[in-house]
Design a binder for these strands. Structure first.
Lengths: 339, 339
DNA sequence: TAATGTTGTGAATACGTAATCACAACGATC
DNA sequence: GATCGTTGTGATTACGTATTCACAACATTA
């Protein structure tokens, strides 16, 4: 049997209400009484029951996140790991915990949302790159349920934290230009995905600034799709002096394609990408990549969400944009004069 | 204001108790009454409040997992992603959800355990490769708290699911022997880590079976440590015809070291490792690796845990061992006669 | 016919906490 | 010395659910 406030009260010869007051730090308790109660609490190893607290306070101290499993069927997607690690890290100094569900279909996902929200299991929700017309969002907003979007919100009315993808892409492109590359192509993601579209914008911006002609190649996400597209391009003789790639994972596909065809990196083709993941260090010469500062992003998002939960701030929606910086490695090494 | 059983009862002109009975599927309810209540529930979009249910039933329907952040500081460790994805996958067909915490120090970890257990936030716990003398385990057992160990339990009294690491290692070694390699070394993990020790056992077993001399190289976990050790070995002229490596991540370190020194894989040195992660496909010729079937492992572990929670089975501790199979790729290609 | 289940239902209770209400005891004010 | 705020405390209530208790109405058995 678990020790309750009632037990503490009995032993301390006070009422349960007083025990609760002591725990809550209420000032209107005789110091002497407080000390006695605290001593008993300490001694009997009492810990409040969060289930009862939840019912009473209407708070579970749980933050939820629902991810859609990546369509590549890869169960070991490092981005998921990074995201979750950063979130738990950000929560570790708070009283909140993370409740996570990963859906393997849209139907599953919407069912999970239902369960999670309507049963009041969580206090707030983090949403990663939701679709603009996602019906779940409309409901969240109607129910006045606290949530923060991680990624491009597309709708101004939502609280969000996002990377400065335009700037990131512009920066990476400028770096390649500075390294002396005359023609730089961008192997980006599918059209309509905000993170990809934003990076295309930044890339084009930089190219136009320097009077260069942009070449945009749209490609599905993932190693395999990038590998196929790159192989096709290279075999057709389309080998730019530098290639900017949507993310590190796709870059490995490009690297593999180049390796198969004997295209040396960076000598024949330089490479830069985004995310600055662990992969970048595993590649022989190292892969130049833009660090998106996921840690900062998540930290801010979590802070915002907790604010929403605790203060019920219904003020104007905030949008925090995280700056980023480029990490230069061997794959984008300067072209020397001999070329 | 949320709609409660009380509301349903009022509208249906029955008592709250009857509504609860209908929800619970109690047979002793007039079919006519049941239908009426169900109609009202449907219509008013009622969903039970899990907080109240938790207080009443003493169940939160939450499974906990506490991970220690890898000392390499890599926030995007794919193993974490794989583990979490598989767990949520296994839970998706149940009423349980996953509550995850990732500690960044031993002190932090023990604090999190305290919070999680003593406040009764979760119903059961998954433990990944705990230390033998971990004080938390003693307490869990004393409190009769449901938990399942993922990995080598080291103590027979605990329920566990584990890979057949001895067999996996033996299988991989035999594969390399079959491919015609005369001297095969094993770059394993640190001594005292069960998963590493077991694999050493399997490796030695296979070598002895075929009358070959085993060479065991102990190395810290991670890409960097493996890179350093491999570089040292290779530079010292210690280049085995085949190398078995503790895991894919470390194998990338070996591959990088070999690349730097111009050692061709698999022609000069074959390679095989464990985990069959996404990394294996990213490497030029592909990396031969043993698929540990994490999915199956986790599935069984979760099933067991739920059994413990729901049936309070205090029967003899079970130990489920998952078989594995080798996935052969380019890195271990057969040595041709010309060598 | 009386005693004895059976079935369906409402009333009441308990879970453990937080918060409100009620009320003493006491000091300050006019 | 009566009134009024302050302070400290206990009694009470509410949160929403699951379950036990109580009790009708009815069927079955001796």
């Amino acid at each position: 049997m678990r020790v309750t406030q009632q037990d503490i009260a009995r032993i301390s010869a006070v009422s349960q209400a007083t025990v609760s007051r002591v725990l809550a730090g209420d000032t209107r308790v005789e110091p002497e009484t407080r000390d006695r109660v605290l001593a008993v609490i300490e001694e009997s190893n009492y810990q409040p029951d969060v289930r009862a607290q939840s019912l009473r306070t209407k708070r579970t101290n749980l933050i939820g996140i629902v991810l859609q499993r990546s369509p590549t069927d890869a169960t070991d997607d490092p981005f998921i790991a990074a995201l979750i690690t950063e979130i738990t890290q950000a929560l570790s100094s708070t009283k909140y915990h993370l409740c996570i569900d990963i859906a393997n279909s849209a139907e599953h996902q919407s069912r999970v949302y239902d369960e999670l929200l309507r049963t009041r299991r969580i206090d707030g929700l983090l949403l990663v790159e939701p679709e603009k017309d996602d019906p779940r969002l409309t409901r969240l907003q109607r129910d006045d349920f606290p949530f923060v979007v991680i990624g491009n919100p597309k709708v101004a009315a939502w609280h969000s934290v996002d990377n400065d993808n335009v700037m990131a892409s512009r920066m990476a492109t400028l770096h390649l230009i500075e390294e002396g590359h005359p023609d730089i192509a961008f192997l980006c993601g599918p059209k309509g995905v905000a993170v990809s579209d934003d990076r295309v914008t930044g890339y084009q911006m930089a190219m136009h600034e320097r009077g260069l002609k942009p070449t945009v190649l749209h490609c599905d996400f993932g190693h395999d799709a990038a590998f196929c597209l790159a192989t096709d391009q290279f075999e057709a003789g389309q080998i730019p002096s530098a290639l900017l790639v949507m993310d590190d994972f796709m870059a490995t596909g490009v690297i593999k394609a180049a390796g198969n065809l004997g295209i040396a990196i960076p000598d024949q083709m330089a490479l830069a990408s985004f995310n600055n993941s662990t992969l970048c260090g595993l590649i022989p010469n190292g892969l130049t990549s833009v660090n998106m500062n996921l840690s900062d992003l998540v930290q801010r998002g979590v802070e915002k969400l907790i604010q929403l939960i605790e203060n019920g701030e219904r003020a104007e929606p905030s949008r925090y944009v995280v700056p980023c910086e480029i990490v230069i490695r061997g794959s984008s090494r300067r072209i020397n004069a001999t070329r």
